[in-house]
Amino acid sequence: MPSPVIASEGHSSWQTLHEWFNEPHDYEWIKHQRSGRAIIPIFRTLLGLMTVIFGLSAFYKLIGPDTPPTTPGKALSVFMICMCVAIAACWFTQPFPGRRGLLAFGIFADLGIAAAVLLVPDRSSGTFGCIVFAVTGTFATLFVSARWLVAHVVWSTTVTTVVFVLAYFQGEVDITTLLARGTVLFGAVTLVPIFAHLTWRTLYRDAQYSDRDPLTGLFNRRGLEGAVGDLFESARDDSSSLAFIVVDIDKFKTVNDLHGHAEGDHVIRRTANRLSTHLGERGVIARTGGEEYLAVIAGDPESTTLLIEGINAALSDCSDAIPTTVSVGAVMMTAESKAWSGGTSAILAATNVADSMMYQAKAAGGNTIRSAQI
C-alpha cells in the first residue's frame, strides 16, 4: 500500500532540487496511467518520425558537400542511417518500451547527434546542428529520470561547447555571432530541459497523488473509479469473477469520543493496512468514507470467498490498544453472471448491493458478514 502523502512545507530551493534529483522515476507511468494510454500511439509515432528525421539528416549530410572527409566518418554515417531505420521501425511496430528501451534510445540519440556535429567539416553548420540536442532534451524531460536528464544536459552542453570552440578556431564565424548562437543554445540545450523536467515531475507527482487518500495511502473515490474500470475490463477478458466488498468499522464514533481523533486516525490507518495485507495484490482498495472502505478483487469464486470470510479475523485483534470490529458486505459477480452485459454500470449496481449488505451486517450487531451474488 502506498505511504500517506504528506505535503512538504518550508522546503528551500536546494532541498526541492535534491528531492527532484533523487526521486525514483516510474518508467512505466505512461502504461499505468489510464488517461495516458490514449497518447501512447501518438508518442510512438512522434518518436518514430523524430528518428526518421535523424536518419534523413545523416543521409543528406552523407551525400552533400558537408560529408565527413574520412572513410571512418562516412562509415559511421552509414551505420547511423541504418540504425535510424531499424529504430524507427521499432517505434512504429513494437509496444512502447520500458526503462531499458527508453534509456537506450536516449543514449543512441545523444551519441548520434554528437558524432554528427563533431564530424561535419563546416564548424558553422555544426553549431546550428547542436540545436537538435534540444529535441533529445524534450525526450529526456518526458521519459527518463532526473539523473539521466542531468547526464544528458552535461553531455550535450559539453559537446556544444567543443563544437563552438572548434568553430571559433576555424575562423569562419566572428566571435559575436558565435556568442549570440551560444547564448540561445545554452538556454535551449541546458536550462530549458532542467526547468521543464522539474516542473513536469512536480505536476506529475501532484496528479499521481490526487487519486489517493492522504491518511491511508489507499485510493480515494476519484482514483477508485479508474482502477475499478480497468479491473472490470481485465476480469471480463479473463472470464474471472469479481467481488465487491464494503467494510465499515463498528462503533467508530465511540472510538473518537473516548480516545480522540488522533487515535481514531490510527485505527483507520491500522484497518487500511490490515485490509491491504489480507487482500494482497488481488484487486483495488479505497477509503470511500470516514471509516468505510471498498475493495474490488478478481479471481476464482472459491479463493475469493475464503478471503472474504477471513476479513473479520484479519482486521480485528482483541489485544489491540483500541480493539475494533468491522461489518462486511460482499457481492460476488461470477464469470457467468448476466450483470457483465450491463458494462461498467454493473460496477455501480454491485457496489450499491454490497453497501446494502454491509448495513445488514451492521444491523445484525456488527462483526459479521452478509453476502449476495448477482
Rank of each mutant, 00 (worst) to 15 (best):
W91F: 14
V173I: 10
W148K: 02
L315A: 09
L307A: 07
I285W: 03
W200N: 05
R282Q: 11
L231M: 06
W29F: 15
A140Y: 09
T141Y: 09
T45A: 15
E225D: 11
G171V: 01
N220C: 04
W14H: 00
A313N: 13
A196G: 04
T288M: 00
S124M: 15
R221I: 00
F219H: 14
L215S: 05
A227W: 05
S239I: 06
A104M: 10
V163Y: 04
S210I: 12
A75H: 10
T324Y: 14
D110E: 12
D300Y: 05
V78H: 11
L198D: 04
D122I: 03
T305G: 06
S316I: 01
I107V: 13
S156P: 09
G126L: 05
I113P: 14
I297F: 06
P69V: 11
R221H: 08
M358R: 07
R37T: 02
D355I: 07
G101P: 02
D206A: 13
N352F: 07
D174W: 05
M358W: 04
A372H: 03
H11S: 09
N273H: 11
L185D: 09
F232M: 02
D257C: 12
Q33Y: 13
E336G: 09
S77Y: 14
G36S: 12
A86C: 13
L242V: 04
F79G: 12
T344V: 11
G329V: 14
P68A: 08
T93D: 01
T368P: 00
I39H: 02
E172Q: 13
K61D: 14
M333V: 15
G226I: 10
D211I: 14
H259S: 07
V159Y: 02
T304V: 12
L46C: 13
E263F: 04
Y27Q: 04
A364E: 09
Y359T: 04
F252A: 05
L149Q: 02
A116R: 00
E302K: 10
